[in-house]
Design a protein around this nucleic acid. Structure first.
Lengths: 237, 237, 237, 237
DNA sequence: CATGAATGAGTGTTCATTCAT
DNA sequence: TATGAATGAACACTCATTCAT
C-alpha cells in the first residue's frame, strides 16, 4: 500500500561534495523536489490512516525529514495535506486525459472500453484511497477539495458516458426514452462502489465473489438495459 | 442533520420553579435511561464530525452532562462510540426486519418494491451517516464494526435480491445466463452510491439531477438488463 | 494477605425481618459495627497497595458497601484511613500489654523470651504492613501517626529492653560499660529489620536464608556482646 | 533535603542582557544535558513526596521546564522516575566501588572500618531517601527495581561482611560456630535501620540519643558477640 | 537549509466528594 | 440508612507549531 509513496529517506550518492572534505555541516542534501517528496509522504500516511488520524510527525518520518522542515515549505499541516491531495488530483486528471482515444466504434464498444479502463483505475490503491478519504473525510473537512475531486472523478466521467449515450440515441443504439445523464451516473457510481467494496475493503473475505464476474455482469446488465426495444424493431418513428 | 439526536442541554422547567429561593443546585436530571441518551448524543456528534474529530467534551455537552459522567456508564470513549454505533445498527436491523412482506408478485414488482423501500432508507440522514462513517472510518478504526455493518446493510440485502433473481430465473422472468449474486451487488451497491452522492453530499449543488429520475432510471436499466432475450419471441407463454 | 480483613459483603441471615414481609427497601442490614468493618476493609486495602495508591472505591468494594456510605461514618478518606490505622495501633498495643509476664528469670532468659515473642509478632502480616506503610508513607503523610506508631512499636520496646539491661547490669549479668539505651535500640531495630526483610519482601527469593538461623544468630551475638568480660571475672570494683 | 537536586528555574544571566529590547522570548536554556537535570528533579520530588504522590507537573517545575518537554526525553512518567532511580543506584554503586581498599588489618579493624564507612553513607540524605522509597514503595510498584537496589545496598554488603567473618574464622578471630551469613545480615540490616531511624525520621525529637553512642554500641556488641570463647584463656597467643 | 529543543492548547481519564432520592 | 447519579479538580499524555542555533 505504500510502495508508490515511499520517499528515499537518505540518498547520500546524489550529493555533490567533491574536492572539499565533507564539511560536517548538519544539513546535507538539498532535495531538488522536496515539496513533491512531502506530497508523496503525506499521501502515503493519509492513505493509511485517514486525514484526522494522521500526525505531522508520521509524515515527516515517512519523508525522512524532521517536522520543522515541513514549515519551510508549507504554511501548516492542512496546507501540506490539502496541497498534496490537489497535486494528486492533478496527476490523476492528467493521466485520465491521456486515456480515452475518441473511438469511432459502436456505442457498446465505446462503453465497454470506457468501463474497463475505469475499472482498471478504480483498482489502484491510490484510487481506493481517494474514494475513501476524499469522499468521506474531505466532505466534512474541506468541501472545496471534495468538490474538486468529485468534479474530476465523477462528474466528468458522467459527462463522457452521457455523451456516448446521447450519440447512441441518435444512432439508434440506445433507446430514446432513457435519461442519459441519470443512466451515466448509475454506470459510473455503481461501478466505483462495486470496485471499491470489492478491492479496497475486507468484504470479499466474508462475502467472496470473482472480480471479473462482478465487472462483466454490471456492464452487461447496463448495456442490455439501455438497448432499444427489439420486439418492434422499426417502431421508431 | 441533528434533529433526532439533540438533547436539551438544560431542563428549563426545573430551573425557575420559584422566582426566589432555588439555590442553584448543581445538577438536575435524574436520568431515566442515560445510556441511550448518550448513544444518541454520541451518534449526533460523530455524524457531524466523524469519529476521529469527535471529542468527548462535545458528546457530553450535546447530552447536557459533564464529561466524567460518561465514565459512569462506559469504559472509555471507544466503548461509548462503538456501542452507540452497534446500538444504531441493531435498531436499523430491527427496522429492516419489519419491512418487506414476502410478496407473491412478479419478479419485476418484487425488485421494484424492494429497491424503492431501500431507497427510502438510504435517504435518511442516519443512513447517510452510517454509510460514510462506518464504510470509511470504521474500516480503519474498527474493522469488526465495519464488518457488522456491511453484513447488515449490504450483504444481507444482496442476498435478498439474489434470491429474488434466482426465483425469477426459475420462472423464466430473468435470463438464465445472469450471475445472480453479481447482479444483486450491482443493483444494491449502485443504488446506495447513487442515493448517497445525491442526498448526502453537495454534489447536486453543482451537478443537479432529479432524484426521481435517478432512482427510476437505475431501476429501469437494471430490470431491462436482466430480462431474458426476446429474440426467441414465442418462448414467452 | 486479606483473610483477616475481609468483610461479609452480604449476610442476609442476620437480618431481623419477621412477621412483616420483606418491604423491598433498598437498604437492608444496618450493620451493628460498620465503622469497624470499614476499618478492616481500609486496612486490608492500604496493606495491599499502600496509602497513596488506595482508592476509596476499593475500600468500599472490599467492605461490600458503596462509596457514599463511607461519608456517613467518616468525614473523608483520610479520616477513615487514619482512624483505621489508629484503631489497629490500639489493638496491637492491647495485645502487647497482655504479653510479657514480668519474669524473674535471668537476664539472658528474659531477653531471649522477649526477642522471641517480638519476632513472632514481626512475622505477622499486619506487622509487616505497619512497618512498611507507617514507617515510610505516614512519615510523610501523617507525622502524628508516625509518632504514635513508633512510640508503641519501637520506643516502648526499647525501654523494656533497656530496663532489662539495666537490671542485668546491677546483677552483674551485663557489662557496666554498655549504654543500655543504645544497646536496646540495636537489638530491637535490628531484629525488626531482619524480620521484615526476610518475611515481608522478596529478598529471600534471591538471597535465601533460614529464618531460625537468622533469629538465633542475631540474639546470640547480642547476648554474647553484652556479657561482662570473663577474663578478669572479679575485676569489677 | 533538596540541596543537590534543586534546579535554577530561570536562568538569570540571559534574562536582563540589555535593559531594553529583550522581547521576552518564550524559552531559554539550551539544555546541555537535560536528561540528567530531569533525573535530579525527579529524584528531588520523589524524595520529598514519595512516588505515588509525585506529579509530573512538580518535576517539570522543579527542573524549570514545562511538562510536555519531559515526553521529549522519556516515554512516560514511570520511564522518567524509574530511570532516575536506576541512574542514582548506578551512581551510588560507583561510589561504593571506589570505597573500601582491601585492608590487611585484623578482623575487628576491617569490620569497624567497613561499618563506619557504611554508616557515613547511611547518613546521607540520598540514602535515607532510597531506603524509604525503594524499600517500601518500589517493593509494591516496581519489584524489579526493589531487587536491583537491595542487591546493591544490602546483599552485596552482606557478602562483604560475610567474607570478612569467614576469613576471621580461619584466623581464629571469630568463633567457628557462628553462621557468618546470618551474622553479616544482622550487622548491616541492624545498622541501616538504626541509622535510618535516627537520621531520617523525627524519632530523635521525642526519643533522643547520641548518634555516636548508637553507632559505637552497635558495633561493639557485634564485635564482642562474634569473638571466640575465652573460657580457654590460653588459646590466645 | 535544517534541526533539536521547547511549549500552549487541548483531550481522555481518574477520583474524592456531594446531590437527590 | 443507603445509594445511583453527578461533578470539579486534577493529572498524564498528545500534537501542531515555534524558537534558537
Amino acid at each position: 500500500m505504500e510502495q508508490s509513496f515511499s520517499a528515499p529517506s537518505a540518498n547520500p550518492e546524489t550529493e555533490e561534495d567533491r574536492g572539499q572534505v565533507a564539511p560536517e555541516s548538519k544539513w546535507h542534501r538539498r532535495a531538488a523536489n522536496r515539496p513533491e517528496e512531502l506530497f508523496q509522504a503525506a499521501l502515503a500516511v493519509v492513505l493509511e490512516k485517514g486525514y484526522r488520524a494522521t500526525r505531522l510527525e508520521d509524515i515527516a518520518h515517512h519523508a525522512g525529514v524532521t517536522k520543522p522542515l515541513i514549515y519551510h515549505y508549507f504554511k501548516d499541516k492542512d496546507d501540506l495535506v490539502f496541497k498534496s491531495l490537489e497535486w494528486k488530483i492533478g496527476q490523476i486528471l492528467d493521466d485520465m486525459r491521456s486515456e480515452s482515444g475518441p473511438s469511432e466504434a459502436g456505442t457498446n464498444e465505446r462503453l465497454r472500453k470506457l468501463f474497463e479502463y475505469s475499472w482498471a483505475r478504480w483498482r489502484r490503491t491510490e484510487f481506493g484511497f481517494f474514494h475513501g478519504t476524499i469522499l468521506f473525510e474531505m466532505r466534512l473537512e474541506n468541501p472545496e477539495l471534495f468538490r474538486k475531486w468529485t468534479e474530476v472523478s465523477l462528474v466528468q466521467r458522467w459527462k463522457v458516458v452521457e455523451d456516448i449515450l446521447r450519440a447512441g440515441q441518435l444512432r439508434g443504439d440506445v433507446r430514446n426514452d432513457l435519461d442519459a445523464a441519470a443512466a451515466a451516473r448509475f454506470l459510473i457510481s455503481g461501478g466505483i462502489q462495486l470496485a471499491w467494496l470489492h478491492l479496497h475493503t475486507a468484504i470479499p473475505e466474508f462475502a467472496p465473489c470473482r472480480e471479473k464476474t462482478l465487472r462483466e455482469t454490471a456492464l452487461n446488465i447496463f448495456l442490455r438495459g439501455i438497448e432499444p426495444d427489439r420486439t418492434e424493431p422499426a417502431a421508431n418513428p
